[in-house]
Design a protein around this nucleic acid. Structure first.
Lengths: 244, 244
DNA sequence: TATAATTGTCTACATCATTATACAAATTTG
DNA sequence: CAAATTTGTATAATGATGTAGACAATTATA
């Protein structure tokens, strides 16, 4: 029951406790709007000082997960995650229909650059070929839910950055280049701690986790058109794999 | 280039640096058997004192990721992540063929219990129906790479725990119940910090991240037979989504 | 209205993390 | 062999984290 804490690991006790409380909420041990056990009880359960528990709670209050009220207690706020579908026909805006009323994709930056080995392999080009890089952020109800870096063959998709800026949609932009349909060829999934850039772009707190997908989109006849790496904040998004 | 570090986050600088070095190795910035940049250079790159870098390196040496030699340098040991395929026909041992010479699944615990709401919905049973729970750990070359909790209808699969203990394989166990083939119906993916149980079972350090899949396996005619939650250590495993 | 329960604030101190220097020990290089 | 490079060790100072105890402020309860 009392999930134990580890010392001297580079992770402070208050952060370990905050993570465990987050997990308890996700698993349903603490329901939405319910009161957390009092600080003294939590301190005893975890075998630490009350102030250490308070540090953990303070961090979660800062994150908007908990609300503390003097004299009453500490309460759980809503924390339901979006479910983002991934399958052969993954599209950003369609995927979140019904889960968020307002959703959009914002172009943060674009550039033309030589392809790295990884990008060149993904797109089936020679290393160093000219590619267009698009940096975008997906938002649902005003909150960032994804952060993507996408690469396109610059020779074939000249001006896709302008189209992206105008339409705010990869699907719509590709249509201008005569691509009415595209499929996801491969997806590799991993997870890591958010780096400084992720924290800023996705509005996360240090220590947050991001889910990372690396994917190749192809035309129906198998020609690679986009290589993309997308970061999702794990606390706000889960990925639902659709059986095609 | 210099991925910046965050202070006052409850995660010590040396652990953040250790995580980034691990990531650099996984991404291929530091090849296997190659020398890391000297401690002084790393300290400058991260904007910290040399001793802080040394703490990070010491932790990775302890984990068997690096080897330090006085007067020569610090070297990368083998540390490639396993790529675990996920698709319609996900099988543990088959999936890792060619990536690890020795792989097996160990039954840690089994029990008969009433189905929770979540499990009942997944298996298409009434809540509270009797189900068999199997706790297993997947290992590749002696190192834990997965930790699964699986549920089966107790009425239909009486004795599957014994079969699992004997064969060490879900596929082989299901064959004894006349199920020669099964498909993955749905998979939901998320990520979180490992809890105390994960840390112990998967031999991880606090602060480690686990990828979590929640899946339902069905017979070819669509009858649910298994509901499972599997945790993968993100530092050792990536998931490769196979287009059906 | 008094009492209990709970969160908020304060002070003092111990331990861990980080910085700053200096030098030793082992290895490679010229 | 001498010099340069690199990891290993030691010491001291400072800031962040964790412990301990006391009391204030707010809310619920008898």
């Amino acid at each position: 029951m009392a999930s134990s804490l580890e010392r001297r690991t580079g992770i402070s006790l208050w952060r370990q406790i905050a993570d465990q409380i987050l997990h308890s909420i996700a698993v349903g041990d603490f329901a939405e709007n319910a009161a957390l056990p009092p600080e003294v009880a939590l301190a005893e359960r975890y075998g630490v000082n009350r102030h250490t528990v308070r540090s953990a709670i303070a961090a979660l209050v800062q994150d908007g997960v908990l609300r503390a009220e003097q004299g009453r207690g500490t309460f759980v706020l809503s924390r339901k995650r979006l479910s983002y579908p991934i399958g052969a026909r993954t599209r950003f805006s369609e995927g979140l229909q019904g889960q968020a009323s307002e959703r959009r994709s914002v172009l943060l930056e674009s550039a033309v650059e030589p392809a790295s080995r990884r990008v060149a392999e993904g797109l089936g080009l020679a290393k160093g070929s000219s590619v267009i890089r698009l940096e975008t952020r997906g938002e649902a109800d005003g909150q960032p839910v994804s952060r993507a870096t996408g690469w396109f063959d610059a020779a074939r998709f000249t001006g896709i950055d302008a189209a992206m800026a105008e339409t705010g949609s990869v699907t719509a932009s590709l249509e201008r280049f005569g691509i009415g349909d595209y499929l996801r060829q491969s997806t590799v999934l991993s997870a890591r701690h958010a780096d400084a850039a992720d924290l800023a772009d996705l509005d996360l707190q240090p220590g947050a986790i991001v889910l990372v997908t690396v994917a190749v989109n192809v035309t129906p006849d198998g020609q690679p058109i986009q290589f993309a790496e997308t970061r999702f904040p794990a606390e706000r998004v889960e990925l639902k794999l659709s059986p095609l």
